[in-house]
Amino acid sequence: MTITIDKIALFLGIVLMLIGLYGAFSLKSIIRIILSLSIFDTGINVLIVSLGYLKGRTAPIIDGDKVTVENIFNVAIDPVPQALVLTAIVIGFGVTALMLVYALKLYQSKKTLDINQFSDLKW
């Protein structure tokens, strides 16, 4: 396995996903589980952005210097994954905020954040 310069972001995204997955399954504190899920989310976002990368190209912003209206076709990368990831980040923020508020409510009800204490739905 060789990690070339254009695959670093892809590799990083996968590593972040693995860290997040391991944390979400192994940790006991609810806050830490939420953090792990957040890291997993970030990993997916990095992975999607890296899929839009093209070798030696730059951001799709017309600045009149390096990228102009004439040559944007040949020097700019794929803008679609970036637009999609912007959506994904905002949704991720909303989900994380909701999870944190639920954690706050759970703490108020039992005065603990240990996931093993919340076994009411277990049978």
């Binding site: 799709p60 912003i61 017309i62 944007i72 700019a76 803008p79 637009a83």
Partner: peptide, 9 residues
């Protein structure tokens, strides 16, 4: 728009 991503979003 100069920023293509903004135009898409």
């Amino acid at each position: 728009a100069a920023n293509v991503v903004t135009a898409i979003v």
